[in-house]
Design a protein around this nucleic acid. Structure first.
Lengths: 206, 206
DNA sequence: GTCTATAGCTGGATAGAC
DNA sequence: GTCTATCCAGCTATAGAC
């Protein structure tokens, strides 16, 4: 059933507009960042007035929080859909590949890394924090399993692996390559995955 | 000879104050970022008034540009001081180690990755761009040599290696580990270097 | 060169008509 | 719920006195 199935026509229109607002917010966040994104930007991108925007979201922080939550939910949905027979390392690789592809296709900003201000704002958003903790819990378990099976370096603290893994989803090297290299999106994804797991040395025996 | 050696007392004081301003700017940039840093923040951190600040730097963009230039110059100085007998891969490792240590000790923000706005601003700063290009040229040569000798993966495009290498200097995993793990600074540096060069899999034969 | 004071603008948020 | 018009805070940058 569609998520719109049980709503009245008016509510459907409301939901659709809300999604359009979140789409616009995501795009603007991606290339201006939180501090420079204005509510006027969002309103005019959607084609509504600023006060109408405030009928949907009570503040700029609330709006951005909802956009980030939609992002995390997308990641969670992708994770849940993955084949249950995949090895943990394959799940982690598929998740990173998905995140990179979404980003290369104009999608997500992954703000949390950007600035202390934005990070604090999101930390105060309990709904957002809840989603993050849930996803983090699932990924922690995958990392632990992959370390046990030898697919991830067991000599590294799992914190180091997990945070490095997260950081790759918002690695600025992606934008550099998209801007300055002749590689296409699929090549960029392939190489970023290789660098993440095999490092800059490349596969070798030490 | 000190850089102050040939200046009059008044000019010495002027230079010292300028350095104090750049120190304060660097610190504030580090934890608020460009957009949220105000000229009042800088002036009051140094203990002078805003108009006095504008006697030293003609705009906020100019001030931040000079702070970034001082940062790049520091990296260049460190590179020039390194033992000339080191292998290219050892030089690259030492440079990254230096950058991580400076950052962990409260130093540098490495803004360019942050936002398109800041990146464009710096791109318009010809003095800054010149310094970056010079440093980039030296690092490109080191990467090429290390790829030839097999110390860096020769199957990867050199762009991918260079941009990934730059990205590690501002990897948000560092802040995450500093904030949420129990590792001390030296351990963080060691692990970040290992992850950069050997990857998350760890050393192995494929 | 240093300050106090302020101009000029931008952007988040809202009042109030329809 | 939608709009036009506006308030108010905070910021960059400068005028002008000392």
């Amino acid at each position: 059933m569609s998520i719109l199935g049980k709503l009245s026509f008016k509510d459907q229109a409301f939901k659709l507009r809300e999604n359009a607002i979140l789409d616009a917010t995501t795009m603007i966040l991606k290339d201006k960042g939180f501090d420079l994104m204005t509510m006027d930007d969002v309103a005019s991108a959607v084609g509504i007035s600023k006060p109408s925007l405030y009928k949907h979201f009570k503040s700029k922080e609330d709006l951005v929080g909802e956009a980030m939550i939609r992002l995390i939910d997308g990641a969670g949905d992708f994770l849940d859909q993955l084949d249950k027979d995949l090895k943990p390392i394959e799940v982690l690789s598929a998740m990173l590949e998905w995140a990179l592809r979404v980003r290369l296709e104009g999608g997500m900003p992954f703000l949390p890394s950007t600035s202390a201000h934005v990070r604090d704002m999101l930390t105060r958003n309990l709904k957002y924090v809840g989603r993050v903790l849930k996803l983090n819990y699932q990924l922690e378990k995958l990392v632990a399993k992959a370390q046990k099976s030898g697919d991830l370096d067991a000599s590294l603290p799992s914190d180091v692996i997990l945070f490095s893994y997260y950081s790759r989803t918002c690695d600025p090297a992606v934008e550099f390559l998209q801007r300055y290299s002749k590689l296409d999106n699929e090549q960029i994804i392939k190489h970023m995955l290789q660098v993440c797991f095999a490092g800059l040395h490349g596969p070798r025996c030490d």
